[in-house]
């Protein structure tokens, strides 16, 4: 028999308590190496679309906020095009990176409301922001998605409708706390445990 020659993905290890030194050093007080932290700004004054603020807190199984996490956000532009694709808004990076506040753990990011993007079969998915979360005690980055409350596409979304336990879907939907500000808390454990994906 022939042998498959695929390599294996390098195994993950926790980002640890000092991830900020490597990924957001200016935030960590190391201000002399890079001009700015990557991913600190997703938009410029010229970015097209509805400006929004996304914010949230990550909670552990005891209800304590994580104060040493790092989140990355990845989304399409207002037209539903991912950066780097033909026609995408060149002023929008689509990718943001944020550490929670050192005291409260709350994070926040200025962005635009994304447009819908296609599922594997061409049906459109409701607008969403992909989130990747790492921290001390998290052995492999956690992947989830944030959707928008009241979005008319939510009911037919081909990703959300695949989820067996529909009573957990609200863990993926942000709350609009004030117009244009969306709060998306993540619970690592407990009755409100956020849905995380193997994708």
């Amino acid at each position: 028999m022939q042998r498959l020659t695929h390599l294996h993905e390098s195994p993950s290890q926790t980002a640890g308590p000092y991830v900020h030194i490597g990924c957001v050093p200016n935030f960590a007080g190391i201000t002399d190496v890079y001009e700015a932290d990557l991913g600190a700004a997703m938009v410029t004054d010229n970015t097209k679309g509805e400006r929004i603020t996304v914010t949230g807190t990550v909670f552990d199984g005891t209800g304590t906020p994580l104060r040493d996490a790092m989140m990355e956000l990845w989304q399409a532009d207002a037209q539903g095009l991912y950066p780097g694709r033909d026609g995408a808004d060149p002023t929008f990076t689509g990718w943001g990176r944020t550490a929670g506040d050192a005291e409260t753990g709350q994070w926040s990011m200025e962005t635009v409301r994304p447009g819908p993007v296609p599922f594997t079969d061409g049906r459109m998915m409701a607008p969403h922001i992909s989130i990747w979360l790492v921290a001390r005690g998290i052995n492999i980055g956690l992947q989830t998605r944030m959707y928008f409350p009241g979005d008319p596409m939510l009911g037919d979304d081909p990703w959300l409708t695949r989820i067996e336990h529909q009573n957990r879907v609200p863990t993926l939907i942000a709350q609009e706390t004030t117009p244009g500000t969306f709060k998306f808390d993540i619970h690592l454990q407990g009755p409100d445990e956020t849905i995380f994906f193997d994708v």
């Binding site: 399409a76 052995n139 994906f197 193997d198």
Partner: peptide, 26 residues
């Protein structure tokens, strides 16, 4: 690795096919 005890999801990860959201990247 003690910190993982309260920071590990307890429910199974939901398996999904990759879409453009996962296949594209910064």
């Amino acid at each position: 690795y003690k910190t993982s005890v309260v920071r590990s999801p307890q429910k199974a990860l939901l398996s999904m096919p990759t879409t453009l959201s996962e296949e594209a990247g910064p």
